[in-house]
Design a protein around this nucleic acid. Structure first.
Lengths: 109, 109
DNA sequence: CCTATTAATCGTAATATTGCAATATAACAA
DNA sequence: TTGTTATATTGCAATATTACGATTAATAGG
C-alpha cells in the first residue's frame, strides 16, 4: 500500500529508519558530501554540480532540513546550507550503535 | 517520477545510498535486529514477532538478501536467515567512512 | 499417497517518491 | 518602480514501495 505501518515499531526504530532513509537517496547523499567539502554551500551551486533541476534539489534540501541534518541561513537572495554538526553527531551515534551490534556467533545458518 | 536518476551519480554514491535505503525501513531494520539477537532466525518466527503478514516479511527478507546483508539456509520446510557477517562488516566500513567525514569548520552559516 | 506446514510468488490496491515545468516569492540593484 | 537573480512552492506524471490475500511449491509426517 506504499504506507509503512510505523505503529508496530518502536520510536527508536522509526527514527533510525527515517535517518537512514534520508541519505538512502544518491542525490541527498551527494548534497551532504558537497556540504562537507564546503566547496558549495549555496543551493544554486548544488544545482550546477549535481545534474538535477533546481526544483528537485530544493525538494531534497527540504527533506534534509526536515530531519535536521542541515540548516540554511538566508543571505540576500541566496540561501546558504550547512551541515548541522550537532545533529550530525547525534545521528552518527545512533547509527553506530546499530552498525556495531555484536555479530556474536549467530552461525545457525 | 518516482525514478531515481542514478546515472548522474558515482557507483559508490549509488551503492551507499542503496545500503542505507535497505535499513531505511523499520520492518527491515527490526528484522536485522532480531537476527542479531538470534532470538528468531526463521521466517515464521519473524512474522509472529513483527506484526506484518507473512508475504510482507518474505518480501522484506528478499530485499535484505538481494543487497547481501543476510543469507538463508533451508531446513526442511523452514528457512533460517542469518546476518552475512562479512558483508555486514564491509557495509559498516563504507557507512563509517561516510559518517565520519570531517565536520571541519564549515561554519559558514 | 495424502495432508499439514512453511515460505516464496503473484496479483493488486493504496500510498509514497522522484523529477520537472511553471509559477510564486523575496531580495537586491539600478 | 522595474528588472534581475535565487530559491521555494505548486501541480502534475511516471514510477516505486508497502502491504496483504490467494496461490503455488516444496518438504515433512503420517
Amino acid at each position: 500500500m506504499g504506507i509503512t505501518k510505523s505503529e508496530i515499531f518502536t520510536t527508536e526504530q522509526n527514527q533510525l529508519a527515517a535517518l537512514a532513509k534520508t541519505f538512502g537517496h544518491p542525490a541527498r547523499l551527494t548534497i551532504l558530501q558537497h556540504l562537507f567539502s564546503i566547496k558549495d554551500c549555496v543551493c544554486g551551486d548544488l544545482v550546477e554540480e549535481i545534474g538535477l533541476a533546481q526544483a528537485t534539489i530544493s525538494q531534497h534540501l527540504t527533506v534534509l532540513k526536515n530531519v535536521g541534518l542541515i540548516k540554511g541561513s538566508v543571505a540576500g537572495t541566496r540561501v546558504c546550507y550547512c551541515i548541522d554538526t550537532e545533529k550530525w553527531c547525534e545521528m552518527k551515534h545512533i547509527m553506530n550503535a546499530f552498525l556495531n551490534q555484536d555479530v556474536n556467533s549467530n552461525d545457525c545458518c
